[in-house]
Design a protein around this nucleic acid. Structure first.
Lengths: 160, 160, 160, 160
DNA sequence: TTTT
DNA sequence: TTTT
């Protein structure tokens, strides 16, 4: 059935890259999407939308985008439930990104570096928009993905 | 910022119609949206997506659609947080429907009736698709909205 | 770059199924999508949107849906140009359907028949919503695709 | 009926701002949207999608965005037909933008200037994303809309 | 060239 | 008639 979501927003923090037991990459991230209208106090609020992305695109996102980066996401809404530490069933809703477009990387130099757009490609045949962020800060030869924690994750939620 | 969701799914139960203290109608409902692929056990799963709809459309939805009805929704994702009974902060994600399209009403006769499409209109200038479900079961002269509980609800989440 | 379109509408005629020289199935169809508002004369108008769909889904669409059937489409806008008979460059815009959902087949018995939903599947792993139209008229043992014209078509527009 | 399109792309030229006889602003523009895959020659192509936008947002777009600017569009597909000079019926398809998000203005200094984001607002209650393009070139006190041609246009296509 |  |  039809289930389609398109978002443009900014990462609230660096994406969290992990690997399933089978070595499949997954990244979780939250998008702050500003609302187009003001609330009754006249303030602009934002929605904080949890997203997941799989495989190569997860790795690219973690390499090139960080806290504050602006991305476009095309995906679908997925709901899951699991039992938390207190044995209570928790329901969660997130967007499974089928493709991401890099619209702007964060412009600060501190924190995670941007990798080397020159020699690494953020383009995969299958999905994205090939926008090469120009204001990308790129200085160190830092190894990409080094903060990925290859923990034991189940492949259960793997789509397709 | 761009925030757009389009869904087609079935109501998991009758919509819950309420009114804010100012008399604004709101309906909450959950859509079961079947996934287009099977899981690792070869089963087809569904996502259960919480939705809200406001004003006239809330009333129309509650009048004409019930458990099992198929609807299309065009809206945006909204996140909210509130403190539950145990004082724990709960985050929730839902789709604010800006327009709904009635694709098929449930075909059973029991439970909530379909209202009188003949004299009540489910068409508003602003939004929807004017599909008049033909297999609509319509037999009783039951008053519409009679199961709406006009409780005290805040207008805080009222969009626009 | 983001390019996403979701439509729900009715086929203005039976889909036209063809095959490229390499045997790839393509179907063209037009969707009448009713507008949610009235024009200045107080009439409801519709948009007539050209769509294309490829491979297995093209065949399924041609087998099960016909003039008047209601479908949901999830795809992207594509523009093409070609030189017409008079040597004039023609620009056209159409929606490439990545997945279709069968919402309702036409309810008349005349014209193309609906095939045998009982033994043929309109579900493919990759895409659609598995809605089994219940009011489907199914009577003849008519061979599916028999009105497909396996003409010489180029694969140039084949996406992915 | 559901009819939703979301695009991110670049203006192929400066938007064309006009006014109807009743003084309603309309801007036409074309978006180049790069495809996420390569063709059989290994080249990346783009779709060139015609768009229209009405009222205040038309004026804002014309003031702040020009050839090469990147924008996000949330709207719906509309088809129209008219008879051309040779008396031939022409069908056209375009996207009616309900909201636009300014993602990046062109970074050149020549050509149309960017107006004064400081004192003019590109934010309207109704629609857009409030992104303030930071690399905006802003130097001249050029009057906004001065290249708008207040020609005689019909209000016929005015939506809502 | 348009659907219910 | 097309953008980076």
């Amino acid at each position: 059935m039809l289930n389609r979501t398109v978002l443009v927003g900014r990462l609230t923090k660096d994406p969290e890259l992990r690997y399933t037991a089978n070595g499949v990459a997954v990244a979780n991230f939250t998008l702050a999407v500003n609302r187009p209208f003001s609330n009754q106090q006249g303030e602009r609020e934002a929605d904080f939308i949890n997203c997941v992305i799989w495989r190569k695109q997860a790795e690219n996102l973690a390499s090139y985008m960080g806290k504050g980066s602006m991305v476009g996401v095309d995906g679908r809404i997925q709901t899951r439930s699991f039992d938390n530490q207190e044995g209570k069933r928790i329901f969660m809703t997130e967007v499974v990104a089928e493709s991401v477009q890099f619209l702007e990387s964060r412009n600060s130099n501190q924190g995670k570096q941007g990798g080397q757009p020159g020699n690494t490609s953020n383009q995969t045949q299958q999905n994205q928009g090939g926008f090469q962020p120009q204001q990308e800060s790129q200085s160190s030869g830092q190894e990409p993905f080094d903060n990925a924690e290859p923990v034991d994750l189940s492949d259960d939620d793997l789509p397709f």
